[in-house]
Design a protein around this nucleic acid. Structure first.
Length: 267
DNA sequence: CTTCTCGGCTA
DNA sequence: TAGCCGAGAAG
């Protein structure tokens, strides 16, 4: 049987989608769909994929069979967000946002800075909630391979991290480190110190403090803070311009370009 | 052993 | 009926 395994544009780079047509039996002609992660792991159902990606990614609008995002379902999500915002988020916090993720095009988790309402530009700190669950050692590894993409699906240049910020543990790239720190900042109001114990470098499996990101202890200077404030300000401005341009061009509800710019802000 | 393939259960 | 997953077949 002809077997096609293609890169799928709705998925991050490296993910493949395969469709296999059954060639015999009572169900001949029916087809099965599989996905392959960049590491080659095979997924044969949506629940299995959801389990692997963790509960921070909303797959409700993802159609497993076709590999595309269903617009009909997207509208429902958007509707709900509106509703929550109109209520000023009183009542229960939306537990799904403890790690804010993009709800649109693709399958992978992307920490972002959440700006709740456009011109007033207030960033709300997420309520302390549901962060008491034990964490897996090296749970940040799940964040590896995540990147920001612009509207043409080209890789946006990754942020430069201050030198002196170094990761620890297996397979720790700058990008994972960035994601890990961004996540840490989003999930807790506690100080982010990195791994204070020197022993962690010798034996991370034993000495790792799971409430801290996978990086060595570091010092943040006033200069770092000033530079970062500048950066955030300029990126917010770009986001604002992009949102405006987008709204003027297409009407409300088409904010991908703007979101994608926001994603690269960093911690 | 791992991977492929189709049956059959369940919502 | 479509989606999911068990389990026999195949390698």
């Amino acid at each position: 049987m002809e077997r096609k395994r293609w890169e799928c544009s709705a998925l991050p780079k490296g993910w493949k989608r395969e469709e296999v047509t059954r060639k015999s039996g009572l169900s001949a002609g029916k087809s099965d769909v599989y996905y392959f992660s960049p590491t080659g792991k095979k997924f044969r159902s949506k629940p299995q994929l959801a389990r692997y990606l963790g509960n921070s990614m909303d797959l409700s609008s993802f159609d497993f069979r076709t590999g595309k995002m269903l617009m009909s379902k997207l509208n429902k999500n958007r509707q709900r967000l509106r509703y929550d915002n109109n209520n000023q988020n009183k009542g229960k916090p939306d537990l799904n946002t403890s790690l804010p993720v993009r709800q649109t095009a693709s399958i992978f988790k992307q920490p972002v800075t959440k700006v709740t309402n456009h011109p007033s530009n207030k960033v709300k700190t997420d309520p302390q909630k549901a962060i008491d669950q034990p964490r897996q050692l090296f749970w940040e590894k799940k964040l590896s391979g995540l990147n920001a993409f612009d509207i043409a699906e080209e890789l946006v240049k990754t942020m430069d991290l201050p030198k002196g910020l170094q990761g620890v543990g297996p397979g720790c790239t700058d990008k994972t480190l960035l994601s890990a720190i961004a996540s840490a900042l989003h999930t807790s109001a506690a100080p982010i110190t990195g791994q204070l114990s020197a022993a962690v470098e010798k034996n991370p499996g034993v000495w790792l403090n799971t409430s801290q990101p996978l990086c060595k202890a570091f010092i943040v200077t006033d200069e770092d803070i000033r530079k970062q404030e500048e950066l955030v300000y300029s990126v917010r401005k770009r986001l604002e311009e992009a949102l405006m341009a987008d709204i003027i061009a297409k009407g409300p509800g088409h904010c991908r370009a703007a979101w994608n710019m926001g994603v690269s802000t960093g911690p």
